[in-house]
């Protein structure tokens, strides 16, 4: 089995995995980072979104081997100690999560949106989220939270 190495949440990691291992399984099973979730098997739900070199990616569509040498950030790597990232804080403030299962993917995806579009409209937020399913919130408060976080992040 090949060794796959990368930097995850600022830490250098390496594990021997089968070549067919997906990045999400590498994170969950080999690194114990269970904050990244698996909600489907067709790359539709977005619960597994992480950042690879700063870009949001569904980690179920990427082989671990494809992320060799990359910088990966997961939900566990966002907060600065006890201080939440503004996107996490906005999700809490606006009740943008209920069961919490889609939340890591939503937050990671939303951060990438705001990086690419500093002042997204409601329509742009809703369209951007087409790759992330939530069954609890009706998206209402997620949209509000992302708009609020964008404002905070603009400073």
């Amino acid at each position: 089995m090949p060794a796959v190495s990368m930097t995850v949440n600022g830490k250098k990691v390496s594990a021997d995995v089968e070549p067919r291992t997906l990045l999400v399984h590498y994170l969950r099973e080999h690194l114990g980072l269970t904050g990244t979730h698996v909600g489907c098997d067709t790359s539709q739900c977005g619960a597994c979104v992480v950042h690879i070199n700063g870009e949001s990616v569904k980690s179920c569509t990427v082989l671990a081997a494809q992320a060799e040498g990359a910088k990966v950030t997961t939900i566990e790597g966002l907060a600065d100690g006890d201080k939440l990232h503004p996107m996490q804080e906005a999700f809490r403030e606006h009740h943008a999560l209920q069961c919490g299962f889609c939340t890591p993917g939503m937050v990671m995806s939303a951060i990438d949106l705001v990086k690419k579009n500093k002042n997204p409209s409601e329509k742009e937020i809703r369209e951007w989220l087409s790759g992330n399913l939530c069954r609890c919130t009706g998206y209402h408060n997620i949209v509000k939270a992302i708009a609020a976080a964008a404002q905070t992040m603009r400073g």
Binding site: L33, T34, G35, T36, T74, I75, E76, L78, A79, L84, Q88, F91, R92, E93, H95, L97, G100, F101, T103, P104, V107
Partner: peptide, 14 residues
Amino acid sequence: RRIEDYRFLTGRGT
């Protein structure tokens, strides 16, 4: 604001 949110937002839900 919800008490349970911190663990869900930081990937520490179980």
